Measured scan of single mutants.
Amino acid sequence: RALPCPAHVVFRYQAGREDELTITEGEWLEVIEEGDADEWVKARNQHGEVGFVPERYLNFPD
């Protein structure tokens, strides 16, 4: 997929490290980079905060 792209959060995730982003179910993010580890992506939330989130917690519109 082309980046950046929108993504809808389907599961809540609490950041466990400083470089991760806490996300809430129902929130929209902008995915800006593929992650440095499998199944992680770097995203920006509506407040401009950036961090890594688990890709499987997101839904990408067609």
Rank of each mutant, 00 (worst) to 15 (best):
E33Q: 14
D19L: 11
R17Y: 04
Q46F: 08
E49D: 10
H8A: 04
E55K: 12
P6L: 06
W28V: 15
V10P: 00
D36W: 13
I32Q: 06
V9S: 02
G16H: 12
I23F: 01
E25K: 15
Q46P: 06
V31C: 08
A2D: 15
I32P: 02
L29C: 01
R1C: 04
F11Q: 10
G16Q: 13
E27S: 00
V10G: 08
N59V: 11
P6Y: 07
L3G: 03
I23Q: 00
F11V: 13
V9F: 01
W40H: 13
N45K: 05
G35F: 09
P4A: 04
E39F: 14
T24D: 15
G26K: 05
E30M: 10
E27C: 02
Q46E: 11
P4M: 07
D38P: 13
C5Y: 08
G16R: 11
E20W: 00
A37H: 13
G48W: 05
Q46K: 14
N45C: 00
G26C: 02
P61L: 13
A2R: 14
G35R: 11
C5W: 05
F52Y: 15
E20V: 03
G16Y: 15
D36R: 12
I23K: 02
H8R: 08
R12V: 05
E49C: 12
P4Y: 04
D38G: 13
F52L: 15
A15H: 01
E30D: 08
L58D: 02
V31D: 00
V10M: 13
F60N: 04
W28H: 13
G48I: 02
N59G: 10
I23P: 03
R56A: 14
T22E: 04
A43N: 02
H47G: 14
P61C: 15
R56G: 10
E27Q: 06
V53N: 01
T22N: 15
E18D: 14
I32K: 00
Y13N: 05
R56D: 11
P61I: 15
W40Y: 14
R17H: 14
A43M: 04
E33Y: 03
E49I: 15
P61S: 15
A2C: 14
E39K: 13
D62I: 05
Q14L: 08
L58M: 03
C5F: 06
Q46G: 11
E20D: 06
D19G: 15
P6D: 05
C5I: 05
A37W: 11
G16E: 15
L29V: 15
V41M: 08
I23M: 07
D19P: 05
P6W: 06
K42S: 06
V53S: 00
V9M: 00
L21I: 04
T24P: 01
E18M: 07
A7H: 00
P4I: 05
R1H: 08
W28M: 12
A43P: 01
P54H: 12
E33D: 09
V53D: 02
E49L: 09
N59T: 13
G16V: 15
E18N: 11
G26V: 00
A37N: 11
N59Q: 13
T24K: 14
A7Y: 04
T24W: 07
L3Q: 05
E18Q: 13
L58Q: 01
P54T: 01
A7E: 02
L21C: 00
I32G: 02
P54I: 05
E49T: 11
A2I: 15
W40P: 02
R12F: 12
A2F: 15
I32S: 01
E49K: 12
P54D: 04
E55V: 14
E39Q: 12
D62P: 07
N59R: 14
F52M: 12
H8I: 04
G16K: 14
C5L: 04
L3T: 08
E33T: 06
H47A: 15
H47P: 03
V53L: 03
E34A: 13
L3A: 02
E33L: 05
Q14H: 11
I32W: 07
L29I: 13
F52V: 10
R12D: 12
A37M: 13
V50A: 08
I32L: 11
P54R: 13
A2N: 15
A37S: 15
T22A: 08
N45V: 00
E39W: 07
E39R: 13
E30L: 07
D36L: 13
G16S: 13
A37C: 15
W28T: 11
T22I: 01
E20C: 10
P54L: 12
E20F: 06
A15T: 02
P4L: 03
R44Q: 07
D36F: 13
G16L: 12
L21R: 00
P54E: 04
I32M: 09
V31Y: 05
A15G: 10
E49A: 09
P54N: 15
V31T: 02
D19W: 05
T22F: 02
F60C: 07
F60I: 09
A37T: 13
F11E: 15
A15Y: 01
T24V: 12
E18R: 09
W40K: 11
I23H: 00
R1T: 06
W40E: 08
R1Y: 10
Q46C: 12
E39A: 12
D62V: 11
G35S: 11
W28Y: 10
A15W: 03
D36T: 12
E18I: 05
L29M: 04
D19S: 14
H47Y: 08
P54F: 06
R44C: 08
E27L: 00
W28K: 13
Q46Y: 10
E33M: 07
R44F: 02
P61D: 13
A43G: 06
E49V: 09
E39D: 07
H47M: 12
G35E: 05
L58G: 02
P4Q: 04
G35H: 05
E18S: 10
Y57V: 15
H47L: 13
P4R: 04
V31R: 02
C5R: 05
V10W: 07
R44K: 13
E25S: 15
T22Q: 03
G51D: 02
G48K: 06
A7C: 05
H8S: 04
A7V: 05
P54C: 13
C5P: 01
Q46S: 12
L21M: 08
G35K: 10
R12H: 08
K42M: 08
Q14G: 05
V10R: 10
H8L: 08
A7W: 00
R56K: 14
Y13R: 07
G26A: 04
V10L: 09
E25V: 09
R44M: 08
C5K: 04
V41C: 12
V50R: 03
D19Q: 14
Y13E: 00
F11L: 11
R56E: 14
E18W: 06
I32R: 01
P6K: 08
V41P: 00
H8Y: 05
